[in-house]
Design a protein around this nucleic acid. Sequence first.
DNA 1: TGTTTGACTGGGA
DNA 2: CTCCCAGCCAAAC
Length: 112
Amino acid sequence: MAKDHSNFFNDVHDVARLIPKGKVTNYGSIARYLGATRSSRMVGWAMNAAHNIDDIPAHRVVNRVGVLTGKNHFADPGEMQALLESEGIKVENDQIVDFKTHYWDPVVELEM
DNA sequence: TGTTTGACTGGGA
DNA sequence: CTCCCAGCCAAAC
């Protein structure tokens, strides 16, 4: 993993791309993986910039409790849930069911 | 150059 | 248990 700190966005985009299909993670974990634990908000911000990039599965990134907080930022609010469900992830009331089961922590999986 | 914002988080009431 | 508040940090205005 080439940690390109020149661009915070780049880092976030890079990690987001590594999220396996059918798995989800939260902003805090990504931030932690990048060494910016307290910059969880920036992760979301970076994802906002990722809108131009279709390689970034932003739908696999949710907040810590598994709520699709960013669904509103998608082209279609229902797109996020649809994508998740298409990957085998159940979503109910804008919240991921068994979030812990589908949880994918870059810090653990990528081990740095 | 200074202020506001935000796809968050954690802790307290 | 749910609701509210303060902290955090980089980009946008």
